[in-house]
């Protein structure tokens, strides 16, 4: 399946420090949402605040010290305050691994775009499993053809 965004960065810090920055509200709010209402523990649905950009409820899927943290949310939308288990979401996963020279690599993946929403998967992608990349490629082609 090619319906994944994958980004990574190298950080000069310990796995524990990076993990804390992902899973402790007072640290998380220093770099990501500006506020967190609720617990950042698996099964919880805290509300991430993005200041004037609104709020987005996320559903914590897993928290495994000090290497893995995952949640589900509605991508690109900061206005989903309802029960996120009832709507189409993507899965965001953070993986922390040790790299050389006192660095750690943090890899973030966001996946599930071709399940957005369920009826896309049900009818549109029934005959085509390549999902997102397929569409993006088609778009590129359309623009090339149109040019």
């Amino acid at each position: 399946m090619q319906n994944i965004i994958e980004r990574s960065i190298r950080i000069q810090a310990s796995k524990a420090a990076i993990y804390a920055a992902l899973t402790e509200a007072d640290k998380l709010t220093q770099w990501f949402p500006s506020s967190v209402e609720g617990d950042l523990t698996p099964g919880s649905q805290p509300l991430f605040g993005f200041g004037e950009h609104g709020k987005s409820r996320v559903s914590i899927v897993a928290a495994e010290p000090h290497h893995y943290f995952a949640y589900r949310w509605v991508p690109g939308a900061n206005h989903c305050e309802g029960d996120v288990s009832l709507v189409a979401t993507t899965l965001v996963e953070f993986r922390i691994s040790e790299a050389e020279g006192g660095f750690c690599e943090v890899k973030v993946t966001e996946s599930g775009f071709n399940e957005l929403p369920a009826d896309i998967k049900a009818d549109a992608f029934k005959q085509n499993n390549q999902g997102w990349d397929y569409m993006v490629n088609r778009l590129e082609q359309l623009f090339t053809e149109a040019a």
Binding site: R7, S8, I9, R10, I11, Q12, A13, A17, I18, A21, L22, K27, Q30, W31, F32, V106, V108
Partner: peptide
Amino acid sequence: QRLSALKAFVE
């Protein structure tokens, strides 16, 4: 952007 912010904060 978020990862850059995370790096800046943690380091």
